[in-house]
Computed example of a mutant assay.
Amino acid sequence: MAGQRIFSLSFATLYPLYVTKVERKGHTREELDRVIEWLTGYDADGVQQVISDGADLQTFFAGAPDFNPNASLITGVICGVRVEDIEDPLMQKIRYLDKLVDEVARGKKMASILRA
């Protein structure tokens, strides 16, 4: 299954790509960390620990300290697929994170990104 390959992707590989994306668009790592914390409960130190541990995405989301119950409010299209229609729970969580990173990079207001 193609989806399983992304599940084993190291978060340490993905995080710098997210940082580059938001910084290239004039935003900060702190904004990125804020949306990661909102979604997963990992603070900046927790993210660094996951990176140091070499955790894959499956482990990253399974170990999330406090996955936000309002994540279901994240809607829209990512990679040509509506995030609210993704059936696999892990893939949906990965795409939720992708969507939030895209919103930071596009300069959407933080209150809107965090579904306040």
Rank of each mutant, 00 (worst) to 15 (best):
T28H: 00
H27W: 09
K21E: 12
D43S: 13
L73N: 10
L114Q: 05
Q4F: 05
M110Y: 00
D56P: 03
D56S: 03
V101S: 06
Y96P: 02
D102S: 02
G26F: 09
F60T: 08
A2P: 13
A62K: 15
I6L: 09
T13Y: 08
Q58T: 14
A116H: 15
K109W: 09
K21H: 11
Y18C: 07
F7T: 11
R95N: 13
Q49M: 06
V22F: 00
E30Y: 06
S52P: 14
A64N: 12
D43A: 04
T59A: 02
V104G: 14
Y15M: 09
S52L: 15
L114K: 01
K109P: 14
L114F: 04
N68C: 03
A2Q: 14
Q49H: 03
K93S: 13
G46W: 12
R106F: 12
E84Q: 00
A2I: 15
R5W: 10
D98F: 08
Q49G: 04
A105Q: 07
V47S: 12
F61M: 01
T20H: 13
Q48F: 06
D88S: 02
E87W: 00
L114V: 03
A12S: 14
Y15D: 06
L39I: 02
T59M: 13
F61Y: 02
G63I: 09
Q92D: 10
E37V: 02
L32M: 06
K25D: 14
I78L: 05
K99S: 10
Y18S: 07
G3I: 03
L100C: 03
Q92I: 11
C79Y: 10
E84W: 01
S8Q: 11
D53E: 14
D88A: 01
D98R: 05
I94D: 05
W38V: 04
L97M: 14
P65H: 08
K93Y: 09
I74R: 04
M1V: 12
L39W: 00
M91H: 14
N70A: 15
R115H: 05
D33C: 07
E23D: 03
N68A: 07
E103T: 01
A12C: 15
W38D: 00
K21M: 13
V81W: 12
V35I: 12
T59L: 11
R95W: 14
A12K: 13
R115Y: 00
G80Q: 07
E37D: 04
I74N: 10
D88G: 01
R5Y: 14
R24W: 05
D88T: 04
Y18H: 02
Q92Y: 10
A44E: 10
V77L: 04
R106N: 15
G107K: 06
K21F: 10
I86S: 03
P89G: 09
D33N: 08
S72K: 13
V77G: 06
E23Q: 15
S72M: 10
N70E: 10
D85E: 07
I51Y: 05
V35W: 06
Q48I: 01
K99D: 11
L90S: 02
R115L: 11
L57W: 03
R34V: 05
R95E: 12
Y96T: 07
Q48C: 03
P69D: 12
L73V: 04
S10A: 01
F11Y: 11
R5G: 04
D102V: 11
G26W: 05
V19N: 03
Y15L: 00
I86P: 09
E31H: 05
D53N: 13
